[in-house]
Write a protein that binds this DNA or RNA. Structure first.
Length: 716
RNA sequence: GCACGCUUAGCUCAGUUGGUAGAGCAUCGUCUUGACGUGACGAGGGUCGUAGGUUCAAUUCCUACAGCGUGCACCA
């Protein structure tokens, strides 16, 4: 017997060695499996695209969970004989990475606004490439059996090429347009966002009732009101029936006399405030819509840095944060304030990264027309062509898709895929120009400049399933698309999953994946969100170092249902370290007691052993079904339970007596052998390292061919 | 306000075709001869958020309410 077994199981001595063994076998690559006769050439495929990992830091607990779940799926399918592809990737993660890098710059006393954009791009690229190496070795540490020969990066030439083709095609199909629209602007990060990068925050502020000529208007943002020259009310409001649409009135306003125009619009809520409001179309989405409807003038009041423009008169150049109180003072003096409600509860929109209040601005940018894309997706989703796990995410998705708005894909940051377009200096017309050949405006003949914006990172990652497989001509695309499962965090159901469905459908005509499996957040032991500032971040690598990757993986899986968040505690992982050791020691017992024993072709069990044999067969049936239903949390628990409390506590204990007294000893030995080898196979997807190591020891002892457990056949 | 969840043992959570509740950890007791003390055997502990309804029967289905959580471009 191998003397390793005489000591407790040591993950540190084992894991790297085993991973190397797997990598060298080539079995992570489905083509190699076919070539070596492990998978049938015509076998059904199972494709899983790994969510591209952000290459801007270290692996966190959430990644650990992703790797555990996805590796379980993949190893299971591979053992079942599927032509299994798990394609790994890394994400440049545009804005996210830029933020991380900006923080680093801040520490060095630099800011991105002083660095020339090409140089900044190069710096962030170096930073990303350095991190990529780190991340990749950490993914390997988790035991991920993904096909590294097919690894992709979101900035790879062929990915960018696909993204450009999509952009062009959507533009030609009239699904992408450039237009002056209201966008969400962060004055700290100096970029616009889509609606998803915004976080709502509830606040109690003051609501000011201002005298506007004969009217009283309510506003929470007096600092935007300088240019207000339209006063809007509902056409059915009896209180204001004497005023007519288009009527002009002279009135005294913040910085002097002004002429206001009456506008009647149905969007006004008669119940709110006084039922009358003035509008600021440049800095408010609703006001913008009203202005569009009635073709009203729009004027910018606040600049990109949150400072007041000359229209504010004496307040010009003031930051809006400071200006508000000063403006109120002045209005007070002029007697234009009717009253102030200081307990006004409302929701303001903030940057999801820095919490800065979002300032809507009108910008000329690229937008994706979402309605037609959403309709296609809804049709498939409502017809259950895509299965959501957990199910209720389907409703959430449908709700979002039904209320979808156009998607701003322009970002004013350097770190990303440049938008291949030219902009006319004269008329601001935007032209898609992938070949970089346009030099004069197609509309007015004016000079053009290259668009300096980059794509929203989700525009490119939204194309990930077909882009990575080499749409349209690559053989991989033909073989492995549509993929089977998209496993990712529930958090990015809109950002990523829903957009992949829409873009995948649009480009390939097929859904990109059949099943969406969403896992929840990984929280600390107390159920709190992990954050660096709270200091409660649990590093998965420290846990694997302490307890072994197997313990970490199965500890993450057991008791963790899809969609629900998971409280991760060290105690739990520690418990599963004991489990790995239990298996280790049970193996020692089996090997010691079945030395020089050759089992017969057909087992001749006694009554109780036969029962045990049938019990395990029943278990296999059950868990195979549950594996197919993605209920890994149940399967892992059942296996844990069976191994410990049936195989070890009952079968091994029973065999001691039989072997010692030599009564039905053969029956006992056969049972020990078959149950152990079967259980190793069943456990392998969950705890791949210790099972593979034991497998190699057993095989050596029995002088059989040294096949890897990772490609053994799943028991039936 | 709308949408979507959650509320089961001290803690973390399972419990899908409705039949008087389960796991892990924790707690307590006993054992301690050889696979493993990273062990074995055993025990305690829940009116399954509240109130109704459907049913022979509800933790499971329906309704209302409460508390907690998450998401959201009518909110001036």
């Amino acid at each position: 017997m191998d003397e390793k077994l005489l000591k407790p199981y040591d993950p540190k001595e084992t894991e790297d060695k085993i991973y190397k063994l797997w990598e060298e076998s080539g079995f992570f690559n489905p083509d190699v499996c076919v070539k070596k006769g492990i998978t049938k050439p015509d076998a059904e495929t199972f494709t899983l695209i790994m969510p591209p990992t952000n290459a801007n830091g270290s692996l966190h607990a959430g990644h650990g969970l992703v790797m555990a779940i996805e590796d379980i799926m993949v190893r299971y399918k591979r053992m079942q004989g599927f032509k299994t592809l798990w394609l790994p990737g890394l994400d440049h993660a545009g804005f996210e990475t830029q933020i991380v890098y900006e923080k680093q710059l801040e520490k060095e006393g630099r800011t991105r606004f002083e660095i020339e954009s090409k140089k900044l791009y190069k710096e962030i690229l170096d930073f990303t490439l350095k991190n990529s190496k780190n991340i990749k070795s950490q993914i390997k540490k988790m035991g991920a059996s993904c096909d590294w020969s097919r690894e992709k990066f979101t900035l790879d030439d062929n990915i960018v090429k696909t993204v450009y083709q999509t952009f062009k095609r959507m533009y030609d199909d009239n699904l992408i347009y450039r237009g002056n629209r209201i966008v969400s602007w962060c004055s700290k990060h100096q970029t616009s966002f889509s609606d998803l990068e915004i976080k709502d925050e509830e606040r109690i502020d003051s609501l000011y009732y201002l005298k506007y000529g004969p009217f009283v208007i309510a506003t929470s943002r007096p600092e935007t009101k300088f240019g207000d020259k339209y006063v809007v009310m509902h056409p059915d409001d009896k209180r204001y029936k004497d005023y007519t649409h288009g009527q002009k009135i002279e009135l005294e306003w913040i910085n002097g006399p002004t002429t206001a125009t009456i506008i009647k619009d149905n969007s006004i809520d008669m119940e709110f405030g006084t039922g009358v409001m003035t509008i600021t179309p440049w800095h408010d989405a609703t006001d913008f819509e009203i202005a569009e409807r009635h073709k009203l003038d729009k004027e910018q009041i606040i600049d990109e840095f949150g400072k007041l423009l000359p229209i504010a008169g004496e307040f010009t150049g003031q930051h809006i944060k400071k200006a508000r109180t000063l403006i109120i003072e002045k209005l007070q003096k002029k007697g234009l304030i009717e009253k102030i409600d200081e307990n006004y509860k409302h929701v303001i929109r903030t940057c999801y990264k820095c919490g800065t209040t979002i300032e809507p601005q009108i910008k000329n940018q690229w937008f994706v027309k979402m309605k037609p894309l959403a309709e296609q997706a809804l049709e498939k989703i409502n017809n259950k062509k895509i299965e959501y796990i957990p199910e209720h995410y389907q409703k959430i998705t449908v709700h979002w898709l039904e209320n979808i708005i156009d998607w701003n894909i322009s970002r004013q940051i350097v770190w990303g895929i440049p938008i291949p377009a030219k902009i006319c200096n004269k008329c601001e017309n935007g032209m898609v120009d992938i070949e970089n050949i346009i030099s004069k405006c197609e509309k007015c003949g004016g000079d053009v400049r290259t668009d300096s914006d980059t794509f929203d990172t989700w525009f490119s990652s939204g194309q990930w399933p077909f882009a990575t497989l080499g749409y349209p001509d690559n053989n991989d695309f033909k073989t492995f698309y549509p993929t089977n499962v998209m496993e990712t965090a529930g958090e990015i159901i809109f950002f990523w999953v829903s957009r992949m469905i829409m873009l995948g459908l649009y480009i390939t005509g097929e859904i990109p994946f059949k099943t969406v499996y969403l896992h929840g957040l990984v929280l600390d032991a107390k159920g709190q969100k992990m954050s660096k500032s709270k200091g409660n971040v649990i590093d998965p690598l420290i846990l694997t170092e302490k307890f072994g990757t197997d313990a970490f993986r199965i500890g993450m899986i057991i008791g963790n249902t899809p969609g629900t968040s998971l409280a991760l505690s060290e105690d739990k992982i520690r418990g599963y370290k004991n489990f790995a050791n239990k298996i280790w020691n049970a193996t020692r017992f089996v090997l010691e007691n079945t030395k020089n024993f050759t089992p017969p072709e057909t087992p001749n069990y006694d009554e109780e052993d036969k029962k045990s044999d049938e019990e395990l067969k029943l278990l296999i049936k059950e868990i195979t079904k549950e594996m197919d239903e993605y209920k890994f949390y149940i399967v892992a628990e059942k296996l844990y339970h069976y191994f410990w409390h049936t195989f070890a506590d009952v079968i091994i204990e029973r065999s001691k007596v039989k072997i010692l007294k030599n009564q039905n000893a053969d029956s006992a030995k056969i049972l020990l052998n078959t149950q152990l080898t079967t259980l190793l196979k069943l456990l392998h997807p969950f705890i791949p390292f210790v099972t593979e190591e034991i497998w190699s020891i057993i095989k050596k002892d029995t002088k059989e061919k040294n096949d890897l457990l990772m490609v053994a056949k799943w028991p039936a």
